[in-house]
Every structure is written in structure tokens, then in C-alpha cells.
Design a protein around this nucleic acid. Structure first.
Lengths: 222, 222
DNA sequence: AAAGCAAAAATTATCTATAACTTCGATCGA
DNA sequence: TCGATCGAAGTTATAGATAATTTTTGCTTT
């Protein structure tokens, strides 16, 4: 992944912090102190503050005036919300992308699906899954829509990593295959319907908490 | 409208600039120079830069590293894109809001519709229209969805003001009435379908350019 | 003239310094 | 002992200064 050595320090810090928040390296609710972050990245706090504004817009951090910014908390409600927004927007994107999909693109998407099925950890599964979605949606040529979907994918990944912190069992993704088959046949509506259902599937999984009790964890698995 | 005297200078500048960009007071493509803005608002450029990041996230400005930020340009393609995103997301919001709609809310929405029909200028029509949509969608209780819709409304308003800079003819909004009637009857699907069509209606209007020629202007009118 | 180049001016991005506000803890009084 | 108040430490927000880059301008050359 290009680390973008040419973009501004603020952007670099923003990406680094986003990565940590998504991966769960920083806990929801944790305070992000500008001087500390600045010191870590060997900068002043000015670019750090700009990075915070970006994270805020992505919904990864929340800021209260004069009281600093913290990593955004989330709950089942937000997981559902993101799932439904993704369903609505990805279906829209797919309808516009479909006429521009080539068999080369669909082959790449199939490769991504296979890579996902082979993944032994969440992180690489998420990467493959995201690649699949991006491949079949990007040809829609709607930049604003794609940017919004990207932010939603970032949120989804966060939910996923929070629930499946370490354990992951390989599974074959039938939905992806069904979507590709429909697209190859030119049956856009069927592909869109499957995609819409697919991204709203919310996986559940019992998780041990620090106190030893078990609770249910939720995440979008698609 | 609350000017939010308690929020940070960066937020205040962001709102003020957003207002100017939306109203067309600053042309698409115009450069936003941080020192000039800072001087105008009697501040340093640090909060100005933070405001720029916000505008960037909203899609109202674009920034190139080391080369400053300019007011975002837009074309018919983006108007269509925003219209379709609004259709997808507002329909989603309405489906969730419908069970929580009270007749008090619907009465307020009807008032907003009447205010829109009476409006003699674009600005007040836009305000009434936005109020209508917000009233019937807010009860969905999905903050992320509502925030995204708000940004799309800002973009819509910009397109509208660009096309209908001054002239405006009053018109009665049958769609709004049909939506309210369906909602009062508890027919959510019918209301959603009408809303989805409604926000995708793109108005066209001949406009004289500076060079004297006429071109077509486009905007979402709903 | 037109194109290319170079120095000057303007502008962005960052750093250091300062002021204002919050938070936390200790002390005092009921 | 509990609660409130005051003060110190920590943190955020903004200002002012500096370095680096881009844009502009004017000159030179073809």
C-alpha cells in the first residue's frame, strides 16, 4: 500500500491514526491528546489537529470543543446503520457500474473472492473482501459515492476487527460467487439484490470479556 | 439560525465559508487563501486550515498539497450523482422514520410545504424544502445517515442557487403533499417511492452566460 | 512578438510560544 | 466523612514567526 510520502504530514498522521482506530489498537473512547501524538510523529500539534478534523469527518473520532477528541464509540445500532447505508449505496453503485464491467474485472473480483476464502486471519480476509467490493463498484464512475462507500467500509472493518480480534475460521463466500455469476450473465438486478442482502448480513459471535463473562459481538461480514 | 458563539473559531469559519460557497458568493474554482481568510475573520491561519479540512470532507472544496484549496467545481454528472444518492438514502431514512412519525410532525411538514409554495425567492424555497425533508426523516434515529444526507442537501442547495441565481417562480409542490398523504394513511412504501422519484427530478432552465450565449442550467428541485 | 528563464513576491506548511480552559487532587470547613 | 473550594498541572486553542514551495513578473533571447 502506497504510504504517500508526498502528501502532507497531516494526511500521513490521519492515515496512521485511522489505521490504529480501525484495527482496534486504540480503544473506543480513548482520548487522543494532540501533544502526545505530535511528539510521537515528531511534529508540532498543528498538523495533528488537521488530522483530527479528517478523522471526525470519517466518523472515527468525536471532538468536543475545548475538551479534546476521543476515539468514537459504537454499538449494535451503528453496525446496523452502516450495514443499511452500505446496502443502499453499494446497490446504487453496482447498477451504474454493471454496464462498464469487463470480464477482466470480473476475473480479478473472482481472484479476490478466492483470496478471501483462503484467508486464515481477519485482517487479510477484510482486505480481500474490500478489494472485491471495490473492483465491481469502481467502474460506476461516481467519485462522491465511492468516497462515501469507502468511509463506510472503514467503519465496517472496525466493527469486524473489534468482534473477531484474533480467531477466524475460513469460510467460502457463496454470495460473492452468486453476484459474479449474475453479473457475467448480465443479470444486474439479481446481482444487486444479492449484494444488498449480502452486506446486511450481520455476523454474531460470543466473545469473552475482560471480566471473564461472555457477551455477543456483532459485525458486518460481507 | 444559531450562530453558535460557543463553538470553536474553526467551526465558525467553516460555517461561514460553507454558506458563501453554497450561495454562490464564491465562484467554483476560486482560490481560498488562508491568510486572506484569516485576516478577514481576525484570526491566525491555524483555525482557517482546520475549517478547510471540514469543507473538503463535505465536498465543497478541494485541496492540493502545497498548492492551496479552491472551491469545488461541479457539473451535470455530479448533480445526477447527488440526486441518486439522496434518493437511495432518503428512502432508507424514511422507512425507518415512518413508524415514529406523529401527526404533529406531519403537520409541521405540511406547514413547511406551504411555506415553500409561497416562497418568492430560491433562498427561502430551499430553506422550506430542506425543513420538510428534515422533519420527516429525522425520527429515523440514525445519526450517521442524517449527517450524510445533510451534506448532500448542502450540495443540492449549491446546484440550485447556481442555476436559479435570482429568478424564481412560485410553484405548488404536489410531491410533498402526496408523500404526506401516504404517510398519514400509514402507506410507507408509497411515500418512499414518491420520495425516491421526487428527489431525482432534475429541473432544467436556460441561463444567459456572461458571453451572452444561453446554456442549460441543471439542479435538483426537491 | 513568443518562449524561456530568473529573480521577486506571494502563499502554503510547519514550528515555537502564549493564552485560555479543564481536570484532578489536596486542603479546608461543615 | 462528605462536600465544596482553591490551586497546580495538563491540555486545548490561537497567535506569531520561519522555512519551503509555488506563482507571478519582468527580462532576455530567438
Amino acid at each position: 500500500m502506497a504510504k504517500g510520502t508526498d502528501d502532507t504530514i497531516a494526511v500521513r498522521i490521519g492515515k496512521a491514526l485511522a489505521d490504529r482506530i480501525i484495527s482496534g489498537a486504540i480503544e473506543p473512547g480513548a482520548r487522543l491528546r494532540q501533544d502526545h501524538v505530535a511528539e510521537e510523529f515528531n511534529t508540532s500539534h498543528v498538523p495533528v489537529r488537521e488530522a483530527f478534523r479528517r478523522l471526525e469527518a470519517q466518523g472515527l473520532a468525536v471532538s468536543e470543543p475545548r475538551r479534546g477528541v476521543r476515539v468514537a464509540a459504537f454499538d449494535l445500532g451503528e453496525v446496523k446503520e452502516v450495514a443499511e447505508m452500505r446496502a443502499a449505496l453499494e446497490v446504487l453503485a453496482l447498477r451504474h457500474a454493471a454496464p462498464h464491467l469487463t470480464s477482466a474485472i470480473l476475473d480479478q473480483a473472482e481472484e479476490a473472492t478466492k483470496a478471501g476464502d483462503k484467508s486464515r486471519d481477519v485482517r487479510s480476509w477484510e482486505e480481500a473482501n474490500r478489494a472485491f467490493h471495490r473492483l465491481i463498484l469502481a467502474p460506476c464512475g461516481m467519485p462522491r459515492l465511492l468516497a462515501t462507500i469507502d468511509d463506510l467500509h472503514a467503519a465496517s472493518a472496525r466493527f469486524l476487527f473489534a468482534a473477531w480480534r484474533s480467531e477466524w475460521e475460513t469460510r467460502t463466500d457463496q454470495d460473492h460467487r452468486a453476484i459474479l455469476t449474475a453479473l457475467r450473465r448480465g443479470n444486474t438486478e439479481s446481482a444487486a439484490a444479492t449484494l444488498g442482502r449480502h452486506v446486511q448480513w450481520i455476523g454474531r459471535k460470543p466473545v469473552r470479556t475482560a471480566s471473564g463473562a461472555t457477551r455477543e459481538a456483532f459485525a458486518i461480514v460481507g
